[in-house]
Design a protein around this nucleic acid. Structure first.
Length: 378
RNA sequence: GGGGAGAUGGCGGAGUAGUCAAACGCACCAGACUGUAAAUCUGGCGGCUUCGGCCUACGAAGGUGCGAAUCCUUCUCUCCCCA
């Protein structure tokens, strides 16, 4: 078994667990930073490790296009190529079916992509994606799936789900290394009956863990949690549950309370590069004018490198002058914040006070576009 | 002293009579971002507004004309070349 359920929270559906991978055990709930191109943008491995992240995510589709299979083989796999010693999960390219919708065509056999890099055509089958993830040496592999946008009419979701389920079967049949884990992905959009059907069939095929996909693709926030809560409740209790692509700090806490164990999201890094910092009191848009003479750290309670060494005013200056260090400092802080937030969540579950923890944080967590004034007034 | 060029919004810089509150760029001010085509993208950027407009504006003053950033006169200032 790749997952051990350690404890269940008394007041919510939150759980404490251990996910076992070939490169170490991961305590859950857990957040994985996203490094699509075999790099968590702007940060070095040491910096990522220092911020507390151990399991990271990369993307098979993107790495298939560049650098390509031959280079990865020559390098001796993805871990050696990027010199990451910890476990790596790789996404399949299912999300690119969503995000690169104008450049691809889905058929029951697979997905044909027109490369956004050079326009060349690539036919991705579920088999090929697994084979490539074997070459990558991913510790956790994701099968090719079709991630739909929102909203989609039911009949189209049904049709798409058939394809995703068929791809899941084919992925499972494709040989991999014994040490590699393969998760199943639940689709079904916002239709509970389809989510249910997806869970039944995916669990029937049998995977090392289960992911809920097609979430946070445009739905209102309430729906995100309605579907997540419902779907998580259908999944086997003794296996890991991964909510793909989510999310914001509040969305993750909500999802933990719904029984989710694993998260990944580009928000801390992408938004960080765009000047948005996350704190326990809310979000700061550091490019905004009120921070020009704000000489406090991003978060006074934070122990990350950025907060120990630099002020909001300095970081705003770096963004203002297009200096690379600004992107790095905020990315670093945000990943640290995410990792610590989830770590604190584990602590709260352990102490059986996750509900209070979540409520307290949600209460204090504000968007602070004019940060300085608001913070002073409260 | 002689000859020439020019003064446009925070800056650079188009425009040379109506469609100009004035292109475009920069700067500035906001917003968006949830399995990364993203160090990206979007919007705003004279003032007021009951959102229909109104007022103030293209160095200054005066003039021509239905109408002027655009034409004429004078003035002020800047730059270049020659002495």
């Amino acid at each position: 078994m790749s997952f051990r359920l350690v404890q269940k929270d008394k007041n919510t559906k939150a759980r404490l667990g251990i996910l076992k991978t070939a490169r170490g055990e991961v305590p859950t709930p857990y957040f994985m930073p996203v490094g699509t191109q075999a790099t968590i943008k702007t940060l070095s491995n040491d910096e990522i490790t220092a911020s507390g992240a151990g399991l990271i995510m990369a993307n098979a589709y993107h790495l298939y296009l560049r650098p390509g299979e031959e280079i990865i083989k020559k390098a001796g796999g993805l871990h050696k190529f990027m010199n990451w010693k910890g476990p790596i999960m790789t996404d399949s390219g299912g999300y690119q079916i969503f995000s690169l919708a104008v450049l691809r065509k889905v058929t029951p056999e697979g997905a044909e992509f027109k490369s956004h890099i050079d326009g060349s055509r690539h036919f991705m089958t579920p088999e090929k994606i697994i084979e490539f993830q074997k070459v990558l040496g991913s510790d956790i592999m994701m099968p090719l799936d079709e991630c739909l946008h929102y909203p989609v009419v039911r009949s189209n979701v049904e049709e798409s789900l058939k394809i995703t389920l068929n791809w899941a079967k084919r992925s499972k049949k494709t040989p991999k290394k014994d040490t590699q884990l393969l998760f199943g992905i639940i689709q079904g959009s916002t239709y509970p009956e389809l989510r249910k059907r997806a869970v039944e069939e995916i669990v029937d095929i049998g995977f090392d863990g289960y992911a809920i996909g097609g979430i946070a693709v445009g739905e209102p926030r309430g729906l995100i949690h309605e579907i997540t809560d419902y779907t998580a409740g259908l999944l086997p209790e003794l296996q890991a549950r991964y909510l793909m692509g989510v999310g914001t700090p509040l969305d993750m806490l909500e999802a933990i309370a719904e029984g989710i164990d694993l998260f990944d999201c580009v928000v801390p890094t992408r938004n960080g590069r765009n000047g948005q910092a996350f704190t326990s009191n809310g979000e700061l848009q550091l490019r905004n004018a009120p921070f020009k003479d704000d000489f406090k750290p991003i978060d006074e309670k934070c122990a990350c490198y950025t907060c120990k060494n630099h002020t909001r005013a300095y970081i705003r200056h770096l963004f203002n002058t297009d200096e690379i260090l600004g992107l790095r400092l905020v990315s670093l802080h945000n990943i640290y914040f995410y990792v610590k937030l989830i770590e604190a969540s584990r602590g709260a579950i352990k102490a059986n006070r996750f509900k209070e923890f979540k409520e307290e944080l949600s209460k204090n967590y504000k968007r602070m576009p004019i940060g300085k004034q608001k913070e002073h007034s409260c």
